[in-house]
Design a protein around this nucleic acid. Sequence first.
DNA 1: CATGAATGAGGTTTCATTCAT
DNA 2: GATGAATGAAACCTCATTCAT
Lengths: 220, 220, 220, 220
Amino acid sequence: MVVAPLPVSSSAEPVSQRRRRKDARPSELTAAALDLFVEKGFAGTRLDDVAARAGVSKGTLYLYFDSKESLFKAVIEEGIVPALAAAEQQLADYRGSSTDLLRMILKGWWAQIGSTRLAGVVKLIISESHNFPEVAKYYHDRVIVRGRSLLRATLTRGIDAGEFRAMDVESCIDVTIAPLLMLIIWCHSLCICGHDIEPERYLDTHIDLLLHGLCERGPA
Amino acid sequence: MVVAPLPVSSSAEPVSQRRRRKDARPSELTAAALDLFVEKGFAGTRLDDVAARAGVSKGTLYLYFDSKESLFKAVIEEGIVPALAAAEQQLADYRGSSTDLLRMILKGWWAQIGSTRLAGVVKLIISESHNFPEVAKYYHDRVIVRGRSLLRATLTRGIDAGEFRAMDVESCIDVTIAPLLMLIIWCHSLCICGHDIEPERYLDTHIDLLLHGLCERGPA
Amino acid sequence: MVVAPLPVSSSAEPVSQRRRRKDARPSELTAAALDLFVEKGFAGTRLDDVAARAGVSKGTLYLYFDSKESLFKAVIEEGIVPALAAAEQQLADYRGSSTDLLRMILKGWWAQIGSTRLAGVVKLIISESHNFPEVAKYYHDRVIVRGRSLLRATLTRGIDAGEFRAMDVESCIDVTIAPLLMLIIWCHSLCICGHDIEPERYLDTHIDLLLHGLCERGPA
Amino acid sequence: MVVAPLPVSSSAEPVSQRRRRKDARPSELTAAALDLFVEKGFAGTRLDDVAARAGVSKGTLYLYFDSKESLFKAVIEEGIVPALAAAEQQLADYRGSSTDLLRMILKGWWAQIGSTRLAGVVKLIISESHNFPEVAKYYHDRVIVRGRSLLRATLTRGIDAGEFRAMDVESCIDVTIAPLLMLIIWCHSLCICGHDIEPERYLDTHIDLLLHGLCERGPA
DNA sequence: CATGAATGAGGTTTCATTCAT
DNA sequence: GATGAATGAAACCTCATTCAT
């Protein structure tokens, strides 16, 4: 029971203040919920706090979402798919070396997702998928499969072109993704405690090691 | 609040059945708690269920632990430190190439931690550290710092010996660890949904890419 | 709090569509409320549902009624009194045997009240009077007293004329009324479950037994 | 999820105070609930009040009943069936005139049910069956069907023996029962408001009218 | 007049914690 | 030492009521 995730009311006619507010509410609420779910986990988040952070009363939440669980699902759904679709489009007609393409994907991922509030969604999925199998399935089908396809195409292309060594592509995909996801987790959970990570340096090292590792004698 | 981390009752004198049972209780309880904390998260786990899984009454939990939170801390404390100490000892007097040492560390980590129930502790820390800063601090000081030292020493040794390229060691450590931690998370949270990971293959690829990436012309 | 019990707008002057609508509103609302109060009880009825059934917004209810309770009272008040007044008038100048009069009252009650939506009001009083003593008092004074008077007069007349046996009139009244009220309750509450009642047959049997019971050797 | 409706612990061995209390709890709770359900209706009854009346905390209710609804069902189930079974047994081997039998049934009903707290259960069914179809079905099958059978047998026996007129038995049953049920309703709901009923007189009149009505020339 | 978004008190339900047995 | 019945604070959720539009 989610309404109009994106209030695209670019018509010329004047919309009432009230209507504009109502259109904006769902994403105000999911934004507040995202922050708290990421911070406290699903079970640890109180709807009181979500409402307070969004600046509304507890009851208002229930005008837009049937239950805590449906709010959770809306948070996930609203977050990722649009971003991924954009990424796919952007890379579809890339011309250039696979090395550059791979570098561009990883950097782009950081710019578009990893460093934004969308990263919280990723954290959420990782933490809560055990308790929400349906959400995990949804996310798997809509995001993971497509994200892996992107990398698979890139790696395969590089191997076919002789840029990369012949390797087990499927596990290469996983090993490529893993440091990205851990970066999110570190930023969201563990930065607090002592050891700070500098994302740019971390990513550069990951890319450097990866491309060196993929190429027979290091990347061009 | 009593916590007997390891029921080392290897004394020769005969202990009564009841006494042995009492000594074993704490770790029976933390074992049950670990499973459920990993599966449902801290807030999502009910002490009823912990007690039921351990085969005792709910009240008994409070004979051994002051509160849900102290049970959580005991789960963490009991789990990791002994394992890490063993690993440090094992590697202290290693003689051989840094390449082999690094390979051995990663494989050993999987054998001693990643594939065992200790992995659940890691998952827990990752999921819940936000809500338990003290636990995160404790874990950081006792585990993360020492684990990173191990890798730092290995990488530095390899660079000094000319086996590895000169690189930014600190971020290399993180990038090396990340796939290990993600492997745990995948096994504990996401395996359910569709994409199965084969740990051995995944680790081999990680090691292969890493060593290729670290060496100027690939590992020997 | 406005209550227009009967929208008697039979004036000759033309009223605007809007005005006619406004006059009709209160009874549209009480009609919707009656249905739901009967079906779910007072506490179990949501004003949302009342408004939806009447085809107006929830706020509109509050233009006509101060509160849920005042809506309830209006439902009761609007329902019964007019019908009873009509019945009294109709029977005032009856000439004929008491047997026929009694038969006519019971049949008439079914035709005018028992089989109509007014029956719901009776059901309501029965179910909710405990929670609304004032409403019960009001109903008692306006309806019960007068209804019993009607029967008392009829029975007394029959006894005085030698048509009926001399009996305890007050309890005869109650025993006469009881099957009528239970008929309403059965139709409104219990018909659902299995045992169907055929009101005409039921009434005929009631009248037959009653008149046989009242007369020394059965009715003429 | 009801436990041991009747704590038949007449064994000689001493039971702990605590155990005895636990056995008694369910019926203490249903007794309290019955009172309030009858008085306020299902939706109008707060579990706080039920708990308070039973002298326990709100949480304790949930040790014995899964939900408000299951408490309601327990109230119904616990109440009637035993009483009816007793009545059936009592009448099974009756020898005597049908007139006396019928009189005995009606008087007995008042003594065993109508004048006891079981009457509240009847009131409840009447008020709430609309909202709880399953409960209504259960009650219909277990109570109504059997109660009607009792009367059917009696009436048929009387007609066959020539004591009663040949009549439509099914509707006679309903008309016989109706004043009993209304008596309960009056005692439980409407006595408050003015018109008091005297049950004994009311019943005598009902029986008098009924037997007179059934017999060709009045009962013997 | 009419709307329906917003409110918040109050209901049902859960669960960490206590304590008499 | 062990139990599990009892507690009550706090969570989720509902809905009568209000008020800006």
